[in-house]
């Protein structure tokens, strides 16, 4: 079947089998391998992308269901060579270890912060309920999201844990 969509602002089209999952279309047809396949069952969230601005697990969506949609992947988050605040936050607050969950974590965090740029820790943790980190690095992921939120509010982020007095 023929599909066409916009991916990171670029119009793309091609022929796919109906059973082609959106994540495979992005990775294999378009070469956008930043979006990861983790559990492949809808639990881990590594494949999270934005479909018309809505965070979506691309391993549980058919490419043909995305016909006409605007897709944003991790590759499309930075603009004009500037990291997105969430990308900067993951860098500055050590929000990743092995990095496998990171594209999904960042896409979901960017979605959450677009809805509310000043979430409390509980809201962040519940908002990332569908994203699993096998390194269990959740503490710094939360810090990274808080850093990004502060940046998006044009506020100075809190100092990192490792610079707190007495530590």
């Amino acid at each position: 079947m023929h599909v066409s969509m916009s991916v990171n602002g670029r119009e793309v089209s091609g022929d796919v089998e109906p059973r082609t999952l959106l994540v495979h279309y992005l990775r294999e047809n378009l070469g956008l391998t930043g979006t990861h396949v983790g559990c492949d069952t809808g639990y881990c969230g590594a494949c999270t992308v934005h479909v018309d601005g809505i965070s979506t697990k691309s391993c549980t969506m058919l490419a043909v269901q995305a016909e006409g949609a605007e897709i944003t992947t991790i590759e499309g988050l930075a603009s004009n060579g500037e990291l997105h605040p969430v990308q900067e936050g993951f860098w500055e607050r050590h929000g990743l270890q092995c990095g496998f969950c990171t594209p999904g974590m960042i896409m979901q965090s960017a979605y959450l912060l677009a809805e509310d740029n000043n979430p409390d820790e509980d809201t962040i943790r519940h908002g990332l309920d569908g994203n699993l980190c096998r390194c269990t690095g959740y503490h710094n992921i939360v810090k990274a999201v808080q850093y990004a939120g502060a940046r998006m509010r044009s506020e100075e982020p809190d100092a990192p844990d490792w610079e707190e007095e007495g530590t």
Binding site: T56, T60, Q108, Y111, L112, G127, G130
Partner: peptide, 9 residues
Amino acid sequence: TGDVQVRNR
């Protein structure tokens, strides 16, 4: 039900 991404779709 599910998580944020699941509740979105």
